[in-house]
Design a protein around this nucleic acid. Structure first.
Lengths: 161, 161
DNA sequence: AGGTATAATGTGATGTTATAACATATACAA
DNA sequence: TTGTATATGTTATAACATCACATTATACCT
Protein backbone atom coordinates (compact mmCIF):
# COMPACT_ATOMS: atom_id res chain seq x y z
CA UNK A 1 0.00 0.00 0.00
CA UNK A 2 1.37 3.33 -1.02
CA UNK A 3 1.82 6.17 1.40
CA UNK A 4 0.18 9.43 0.39
CA UNK A 5 2.39 12.27 1.41
CA UNK A 6 0.75 15.01 3.45
CA UNK A 7 0.81 18.61 2.33
CA UNK A 8 2.82 20.69 4.86
CA UNK A 9 0.51 22.11 7.51
CA UNK A 10 0.56 25.85 8.23
CA UNK A 11 1.53 25.56 11.89
CA UNK A 12 3.95 22.64 11.82
CA UNK A 13 7.25 22.60 13.65
CA UNK A 14 9.34 23.87 10.83
CA UNK A 15 12.58 24.10 12.76
CA UNK A 16 12.49 20.35 12.70
CA UNK A 17 12.10 20.19 8.91
CA UNK A 18 15.16 22.36 8.57
CA UNK A 19 17.21 20.43 11.08
CA UNK A 20 16.26 17.11 9.47
CA UNK A 21 17.09 18.47 6.06
CA UNK A 22 20.53 19.66 7.07
CA UNK A 23 21.29 16.43 8.81
CA UNK A 24 20.25 14.39 5.78
CA UNK A 25 22.21 16.65 3.50
CA UNK A 26 25.35 16.05 5.53
CA UNK A 27 24.77 12.33 5.24
CA UNK A 28 24.14 12.41 1.50
CA UNK A 29 27.24 14.47 0.89
CA UNK A 30 29.35 12.25 3.10
CA UNK A 31 28.13 9.19 1.22
CA UNK A 32 28.82 10.75 -2.15
CA UNK A 33 32.04 12.37 -1.08
CA UNK A 34 30.61 15.72 -2.11
CA UNK A 35 31.70 18.70 -0.10
CA UNK A 36 28.96 20.61 1.66
CA UNK A 37 30.95 23.80 2.01
CA UNK A 38 29.88 26.82 4.02
CA UNK A 39 28.22 28.71 1.21
CA UNK A 40 26.43 25.60 0.01
CA UNK A 41 25.20 24.89 3.49
CA UNK A 42 24.07 28.50 3.91
CA UNK A 43 22.17 28.37 0.64
CA UNK A 44 20.55 25.08 1.59
CA UNK A 45 19.58 26.48 4.96
CA UNK A 46 18.07 29.54 3.33
CA UNK A 47 16.09 27.44 0.91
CA UNK A 48 14.77 25.45 3.84
CA UNK A 49 13.48 28.49 5.73
CA UNK A 50 10.04 27.64 4.41
CA UNK A 51 8.13 25.37 2.07
CA UNK A 52 7.80 28.24 -0.37
CA UNK A 53 10.22 28.26 -3.30
CA UNK A 54 12.78 31.08 -3.11
CA UNK A 55 14.40 32.95 -5.95
CA UNK A 56 18.17 33.00 -6.35
CA UNK A 57 18.32 36.71 -5.65
CA UNK A 58 16.22 36.32 -2.53
CA UNK A 59 18.74 33.78 -1.31
CA UNK A 60 21.47 36.24 -2.20
CA UNK A 61 19.82 39.04 -0.22
CA UNK A 62 19.46 36.75 2.75
CA UNK A 63 23.12 35.79 2.65
CA UNK A 64 24.11 39.43 2.44
CA UNK A 65 21.74 40.65 5.16
CA UNK A 66 24.56 41.35 7.56
CA UNK A 67 26.84 43.21 5.22
CA UNK A 68 28.10 40.25 3.22
CA UNK A 69 29.12 40.72 -0.38
CA UNK A 70 28.38 37.39 -1.99
CA UNK A 71 27.83 37.62 -5.74
CA UNK A 72 24.98 36.05 -7.74
CA UNK A 73 27.37 33.59 -9.35
CA UNK A 74 28.22 32.08 -5.98
CA UNK A 75 24.55 31.42 -5.27
CA UNK A 76 23.93 29.87 -8.67
CA UNK A 77 26.98 27.67 -8.26
CA UNK A 78 25.81 26.51 -4.86
CA UNK A 79 22.35 25.81 -6.25
CA UNK A 80 23.85 23.81 -9.12
CA UNK A 81 25.78 21.73 -6.62
CA UNK A 82 22.73 21.18 -4.44
CA UNK A 83 20.64 20.17 -7.44
CA UNK A 84 23.28 17.77 -8.73
CA UNK A 85 23.30 16.12 -5.35
CA UNK A 86 19.54 15.91 -5.17
CA UNK A 87 19.23 18.29 -2.24
CA UNK A 88 17.31 21.03 -3.95
CA UNK A 89 14.83 21.24 -6.83
CA UNK A 90 14.23 24.01 -9.27
CA UNK A 91 10.64 25.06 -9.89
CA UNK A 92 10.69 26.10 -13.53
CA UNK A 93 7.36 27.86 -13.50
CA UNK A 94 8.52 30.15 -10.70
CA UNK A 95 12.23 30.49 -11.45
CA UNK A 96 12.72 29.48 -7.86
CA UNK A 97 14.19 26.76 -5.72
CA UNK A 98 12.95 24.49 -2.97
CA UNK A 99 14.53 21.96 -0.66
CA UNK A 100 14.10 18.35 -1.65
CA UNK A 101 11.83 16.47 0.71
CA UNK A 102 13.28 13.07 -0.18
CA UNK A 103 17.00 13.51 0.01
CA UNK A 104 18.86 10.27 -0.33
CA UNK A 105 15.75 8.25 -1.11
CA UNK A 106 14.66 6.80 -4.43
CA UNK A 107 12.78 9.47 -6.25
CA UNK A 108 9.99 8.81 -8.70
CA UNK A 109 10.21 12.11 -10.39
CA UNK A 110 10.15 15.80 -9.89
CA UNK A 111 6.44 16.37 -9.47
CA UNK A 112 5.23 19.40 -7.56
CA UNK A 113 2.05 20.83 -6.13
CA UNK A 114 2.20 24.60 -5.85
CA UNK A 115 -0.42 26.49 -3.86
CA UNK A 116 -0.82 29.90 -5.40
CA UNK A 117 -2.54 31.15 -2.31
CA UNK A 118 0.10 30.48 0.36
CA UNK A 119 2.95 29.58 -1.97
CA UNK A 120 3.61 26.31 -0.22
CA UNK A 121 5.03 23.76 -2.61
CA UNK A 122 5.23 20.03 -2.02
CA UNK A 123 6.47 17.03 -3.91
CA UNK A 124 3.67 14.93 -5.30
CA UNK A 125 5.63 11.72 -5.72
CA UNK A 126 2.93 9.64 -7.37
CA UNK A 127 3.95 6.27 -8.79
CA UNK A 128 0.77 5.84 -10.87
CA UNK A 129 1.35 9.25 -12.41
CA UNK A 130 4.93 8.32 -13.17
CA UNK A 131 3.74 5.10 -14.81
CA UNK A 132 1.07 6.84 -16.90
CA UNK A 133 3.66 9.33 -18.02
CA UNK A 134 6.25 6.73 -18.94
CA UNK A 135 3.63 4.74 -20.80
CA UNK A 136 2.25 7.71 -22.75
CA UNK A 137 5.71 8.86 -23.71
CA UNK A 138 7.06 5.49 -24.81
CA UNK A 139 3.94 4.85 -26.92
CA UNK A 140 5.08 7.80 -28.97
CA UNK A 141 8.56 6.44 -29.47
CA UNK A 142 10.08 9.11 -27.30
CA UNK A 143 12.94 8.49 -24.83
CA UNK A 144 12.75 10.38 -21.55
CA UNK A 145 15.74 12.19 -20.13
CA UNK A 146 14.11 14.49 -17.65
CA UNK A 147 10.69 15.74 -16.83
CA UNK A 148 8.86 18.53 -15.16
CA UNK A 149 5.43 18.23 -13.59
CA UNK A 150 4.25 21.36 -11.84
CA UNK A 151 0.67 21.70 -10.75
CA UNK A 152 -0.68 25.02 -9.55
CA UNK A 153 -3.80 25.28 -7.51
CA UNK A 154 -5.13 25.56 -4.00
CA UNK A 155 -3.80 23.44 -1.16
CA UNK A 156 -6.16 21.75 1.31
CA UNK A 157 -5.40 24.26 4.07
CA UNK A 158 -6.07 27.32 1.97
CA UNK A 159 -9.17 25.71 0.54
CA UNK A 160 -10.51 25.08 4.06
CA UNK A 161 -9.86 28.68 5.06
CA UNK B 1 -9.86 3.91 -29.58
CA UNK B 2 -7.69 6.86 -28.92
CA UNK B 3 -5.59 8.48 -31.59
CA UNK B 4 -1.91 8.72 -30.76
CA UNK B 5 -0.57 11.94 -32.11
CA UNK B 6 2.50 11.64 -34.34
CA UNK B 7 5.67 13.53 -33.57
CA UNK B 8 6.33 16.06 -36.37
CA UNK B 9 8.54 14.49 -39.05
CA UNK B 10 11.71 16.26 -40.12
CA UNK B 11 10.76 16.67 -43.78
CA UNK B 12 7.05 17.40 -43.53
CA UNK B 13 5.32 20.12 -45.49
CA UNK B 14 5.56 22.78 -42.88
CA UNK B 15 4.08 25.57 -44.97
CA UNK B 16 0.86 23.69 -44.56
CA UNK B 17 1.14 23.59 -40.75
CA UNK B 18 1.58 27.33 -40.75
CA UNK B 19 -1.25 27.99 -43.16
CA UNK B 20 -3.59 25.72 -41.20
CA UNK B 21 -2.60 27.37 -37.96
CA UNK B 22 -3.26 30.87 -39.22
CA UNK B 23 -6.58 29.85 -40.68
CA UNK B 24 -7.66 28.22 -37.43
CA UNK B 25 -6.49 31.22 -35.46
CA UNK B 26 -8.67 33.50 -37.56
CA UNK B 27 -11.62 31.22 -36.89
CA UNK B 28 -11.01 31.03 -33.16
CA UNK B 29 -10.67 34.79 -32.86
CA UNK B 30 -13.76 35.40 -34.94
CA UNK B 31 -15.73 33.01 -32.74
CA UNK B 32 -14.49 34.63 -29.56
CA UNK B 33 -14.70 38.17 -30.93
CA UNK B 34 -11.02 38.59 -30.15
CA UNK B 35 -9.06 40.79 -32.49
CA UNK B 36 -6.17 39.15 -34.29
CA UNK B 37 -4.36 42.41 -35.01
CA UNK B 38 -1.34 42.77 -37.26
CA UNK B 39 1.30 42.42 -34.58
CA UNK B 40 -0.49 39.48 -32.99
CA UNK B 41 -0.72 37.78 -36.35
CA UNK B 42 2.94 38.49 -37.05
CA UNK B 43 3.96 37.02 -33.72
CA UNK B 44 1.80 33.95 -34.28
CA UNK B 45 3.28 33.49 -37.74
CA UNK B 46 6.79 33.76 -36.34
CA UNK B 47 6.05 31.21 -33.65
CA UNK B 48 4.77 28.87 -36.34
CA UNK B 49 7.93 29.03 -38.42
CA UNK B 50 8.91 25.72 -36.92
CA UNK B 51 8.03 23.17 -34.28
CA UNK B 52 10.84 24.45 -32.11
CA UNK B 53 9.87 26.84 -29.31
CA UNK B 54 11.06 30.41 -29.87
CA UNK B 55 12.12 32.96 -27.30
CA UNK B 56 10.36 36.30 -27.05
CA UNK B 57 13.49 38.15 -28.08
CA UNK B 58 13.96 35.88 -31.08
CA UNK B 59 10.46 36.77 -32.15
CA UNK B 60 11.35 40.39 -31.61
CA UNK B 61 14.45 40.13 -33.80
CA UNK B 62 12.43 38.48 -36.49
CA UNK B 63 9.82 41.23 -36.44
CA UNK B 64 12.55 43.84 -36.63
CA UNK B 65 14.58 42.13 -39.34
CA UNK B 66 13.69 44.76 -41.92
CA UNK B 67 14.39 47.82 -39.85
CA UNK B 68 11.31 47.68 -37.64
CA UNK B 69 11.47 49.08 -34.12
CA UNK B 70 9.00 46.97 -32.18
CA UNK B 71 9.70 46.90 -28.44
CA UNK B 72 9.82 43.81 -26.20
CA UNK B 73 6.62 44.88 -24.49
CA UNK B 74 4.68 44.61 -27.73
CA UNK B 75 5.84 41.05 -28.23
CA UNK B 76 4.99 40.02 -24.68
CA UNK B 77 1.59 41.62 -25.00
CA UNK B 78 0.93 39.77 -28.21
CA UNK B 79 2.07 36.52 -26.64
CA UNK B 80 -0.22 37.11 -23.65
CA UNK B 81 -3.13 37.60 -26.01
CA UNK B 82 -2.27 34.49 -28.00
CA UNK B 83 -1.96 32.42 -24.84
CA UNK B 84 -5.25 33.71 -23.43
CA UNK B 85 -6.92 32.66 -26.63
CA UNK B 86 -5.30 29.25 -26.64
CA UNK B 87 -3.26 29.87 -29.78
CA UNK B 88 0.17 29.64 -28.26
CA UNK B 89 1.74 27.82 -25.32
CA UNK B 90 4.60 28.82 -23.13
CA UNK B 91 7.30 26.22 -22.46
CA UNK B 92 8.42 27.08 -18.94
CA UNK B 93 11.56 24.97 -19.01
CA UNK B 94 12.82 26.86 -22.06
CA UNK B 95 11.36 30.32 -21.49
CA UNK B 96 10.01 30.00 -24.99
CA UNK B 97 6.78 29.80 -26.92
CA UNK B 98 5.23 27.41 -29.39
CA UNK B 99 2.10 27.40 -31.52
CA UNK B 100 -0.77 25.35 -30.17
CA UNK B 101 -1.47 22.27 -32.25
CA UNK B 102 -5.07 21.99 -31.12
CA UNK B 103 -6.50 25.45 -31.49
CA UNK B 104 -10.22 25.57 -30.93
CA UNK B 105 -10.42 21.93 -29.86
CA UNK B 106 -10.96 20.52 -26.39
CA UNK B 107 -7.61 20.35 -24.75
CA UNK B 108 -6.68 17.80 -22.14
CA UNK B 109 -3.79 19.72 -20.77
CA UNK B 110 -0.57 21.40 -21.63
CA UNK B 111 1.70 18.37 -21.89
CA UNK B 112 4.82 18.60 -24.01
CA UNK B 113 7.51 16.38 -25.43
CA UNK B 114 10.72 18.30 -26.07
CA UNK B 115 13.50 16.73 -28.12
CA UNK B 116 16.77 18.14 -26.88
CA UNK B 117 18.50 16.97 -30.00
CA UNK B 118 16.48 18.73 -32.71
CA UNK B 119 14.44 21.00 -30.45
CA UNK B 120 11.16 19.85 -31.91
CA UNK B 121 8.40 20.08 -29.35
CA UNK B 122 5.02 18.42 -29.59
CA UNK B 123 1.91 18.23 -27.48
CA UNK B 124 1.52 14.91 -25.78
CA UNK B 125 -2.19 15.12 -25.12
CA UNK B 126 -2.60 11.90 -23.20
CA UNK B 127 -5.95 11.29 -21.53
CA UNK B 128 -4.65 8.52 -19.25
CA UNK B 129 -1.89 10.80 -18.07
CA UNK B 130 -4.41 13.52 -17.40
CA UNK B 131 -6.54 11.10 -15.43
CA UNK B 132 -3.61 9.81 -13.37
CA UNK B 133 -2.62 13.35 -12.63
CA UNK B 134 -6.11 14.46 -11.64
CA UNK B 135 -6.46 11.41 -9.44
CA UNK B 136 -3.11 11.80 -7.69
CA UNK B 137 -3.73 15.46 -7.04
CA UNK B 138 -7.26 15.15 -5.72
CA UNK B 139 -6.21 12.32 -3.39
CA UNK B 140 -4.08 14.92 -1.69
CA UNK B 141 -6.94 17.36 -1.31
CA UNK B 142 -5.44 19.77 -3.79
CA UNK B 143 -7.49 21.71 -6.34
CA UNK B 144 -5.90 22.15 -9.77
CA UNK B 145 -5.86 25.48 -11.50
CA UNK B 146 -3.19 24.92 -14.08
CA UNK B 147 -0.48 22.46 -14.78
CA UNK B 148 2.77 22.05 -16.59
CA UNK B 149 4.05 18.75 -17.92
CA UNK B 150 7.26 19.05 -19.91
CA UNK B 151 9.24 16.00 -20.84
CA UNK B 152 12.70 16.30 -22.31
CA UNK B 153 14.32 13.50 -24.22
CA UNK B 154 14.99 12.18 -27.67
CA UNK B 155 12.32 12.08 -30.36
CA UNK B 156 11.82 9.00 -32.55
CA UNK B 157 13.47 10.63 -35.55
CA UNK B 158 16.60 11.69 -33.73
CA UNK B 159 16.77 8.33 -32.00
CA UNK B 160 16.66 6.56 -35.37
CA UNK B 161 19.39 8.77 -36.76
C1' DA C 1 56.20 18.46 4.64
C1' DG C 2 56.17 19.93 -0.22
C1' DG C 3 54.38 19.82 -4.80
C1' DT C 4 50.82 19.60 -7.89
C1' DA C 5 46.33 18.75 -9.68
C1' DT C 6 41.58 19.55 -8.85
C1' DA C 7 37.85 21.78 -6.84
C1' DA C 8 35.83 25.85 -5.03
C1' DT C 9 35.28 30.67 -4.70
C1' DG C 10 35.94 35.73 -5.88
C1' DT C 11 35.08 39.35 -9.08
C1' DG C 12 33.33 42.28 -12.71
C1' DA C 13 31.00 42.51 -16.72
C1' DT C 14 27.45 41.13 -19.51
C1' DG C 15 23.62 38.47 -21.42
C1' DT C 16 18.76 37.16 -21.29
C1' DT C 17 13.97 37.34 -20.03
C1' DA C 18 10.12 40.05 -18.41
C1' DT C 19 7.40 43.94 -16.54
C1' DA C 20 6.17 48.83 -14.80
C1' DA C 21 4.36 53.10 -15.83
C1' DC C 22 2.57 56.39 -18.54
C1' DA C 23 1.49 58.41 -23.22
C1' DT C 24 -0.90 57.95 -27.56
C1' DA C 25 -3.74 55.95 -31.01
C1' DT C 26 -7.45 53.19 -32.85
C1' DA C 27 -11.91 50.63 -33.04
C1' DC C 28 -16.49 50.57 -32.47
C1' DA C 29 -20.87 51.17 -30.21
C1' DA C 30 -24.28 54.45 -28.54
C1' DT D 1 -19.40 62.24 -33.12
C1' DT D 2 -18.06 61.48 -29.17
C1' DG D 3 -17.21 58.50 -25.33
C1' DT D 4 -15.24 54.26 -23.72
C1' DA D 5 -12.69 50.30 -24.04
C1' DT D 6 -9.00 48.20 -26.31
C1' DA D 7 -4.54 48.20 -28.40
C1' DT D 8 -0.06 50.04 -29.16
C1' DG D 9 4.11 53.11 -28.45
C1' DT D 10 7.94 54.40 -25.54
C1' DT D 11 11.35 54.52 -21.97
C1' DA D 12 13.15 52.71 -18.21
C1' DT D 13 14.10 49.14 -15.18
C1' DA D 14 13.46 44.76 -12.75
C1' DA D 15 14.46 39.97 -12.36
C1' DC D 16 16.96 35.99 -13.65
C1' DA D 17 21.29 33.84 -15.27
C1' DT D 18 25.97 33.11 -17.25
C1' DC D 19 30.82 34.16 -19.08
C1' DA D 20 35.52 34.67 -18.42
C1' DC D 21 39.27 34.97 -15.86
C1' DA D 22 41.79 35.50 -11.32
C1' DT D 23 42.59 33.63 -6.85
C1' DT D 24 42.33 30.54 -3.02
C1' DA D 25 41.50 26.23 -0.74
C1' DT D 26 41.65 21.23 -0.50
C1' DA D 27 42.94 16.63 -1.56
C1' DC D 28 46.22 13.41 -2.42
C1' DC D 29 50.49 11.76 -4.01
C1' DT D 30 55.61 11.40 -3.16
Amino acid sequence: MSQVHAFPKPGHNHARCTADALRKAEAVCAARKSRLTEIRRDVLETVWQSHVPVGAYDILSHLNENGGKTAPMAVYRALDFLMENGLVHRIASLNAFIGCAHMGEEHHAAQFLICHSCGTTAELESAPLKRALTQAVSERGFTIDSQIVEISGTCPHCRAA
